[in-house]
Design a protein around this nucleic acid. Sequence first.
DNA 1: TTCGCTGCAAAAGTTTTGCATGCAG
DNA 2: CTGCATGCAAAACTTTTGCAGCGAA
Lengths: 148, 148
Amino acid sequence: MSGEKLQRNTHQKTAILDYMKAHRDSHIRAEDIISDLQSQGETVGKATVYRFLKALESEGQIRRYTISDKIPACYQYVGDHPECREHCHLMCTRCGRLIHVENPIIKAFTKQTMDEDGFLIDESKTVFYGLCRECRETEAAVGKDEDL
Amino acid sequence: MSGEKLQRNTHQKTAILDYMKAHRDSHIRAEDIISDLQSQGETVGKATVYRFLKALESEGQIRRYTISDKIPACYQYVGDHPECREHCHLMCTRCGRLIHVENPIIKAFTKQTMDEDGFLIDESKTVFYGLCRECRETEAAVGKDEDL
DNA sequence: TTCGCTGCAAAAGTTTTGCATGCAG
DNA sequence: CTGCATGCAAAACTTTTGCAGCGAA
């Protein structure tokens, strides 16, 4: 639970984690990390990226998910501190933005679900999908469906 | 919006959709559908399965997601009728069981999120992850961590 | 009969692995 | 120094596509 998977602190790991943190409000693919870091002059191979991404995911620092058909897997930084996982997230299916929400209503729902269904919700894993304000406004203005 | 993508009704499509409905309480991979249907004597190729799965997903009848590192993509039937999407789901990360929940608390949360953040939640896409009663009991009894 | 659907196999992508070398501790 | 981590390239998978033939309407 308090796992230290980073047995050695390499500049590759630092670069990847920094990248994830810097892009915490958007969805990024493994490929993005690789090409962006490499064009920044960082030496990093895809094997390292995939390996470290997987390690971070099992530590709970990042989350892996699918937004659309076109993008099989993307990753997002969700926080390394326990309190960062005490809330749930809203993800915009249009722009990929991730919004953190801490809301007592969800706590009430979590409790009720446990009482009625015996189901223990892990809030940190919960993501509400929908459209953020900006995307709704854009969509309303354009009146179109262009997906990403 | 009222799409009829099934322009022709073939036994392959029927078999795939029936399979999805029959297994609506668990997570299944494309590969499972292919091998299970084929061992039932159904002639169905993987191209057809992937094509139809994608069509069903864009229609909203099934949902695609990732549970664990080991399983990149799994699919689940979530209903073809509009009212079926008026609720959200609890998914057990241990056994993959999907539980349907209709709860006024969530409606309140949806409304509040819209008022405060301008974020329009699509409830039908929402999944709460956690442990179902059975898996919690099993886990408590075994006191172990074996994942799926 | 028509033309959308299917299966096959090849192609395109994505992720993992083996192994020699590099570098953090 | 020691041995975990990295990069490369090949392997293993997953998903998509082209195309000829099938079969539902």
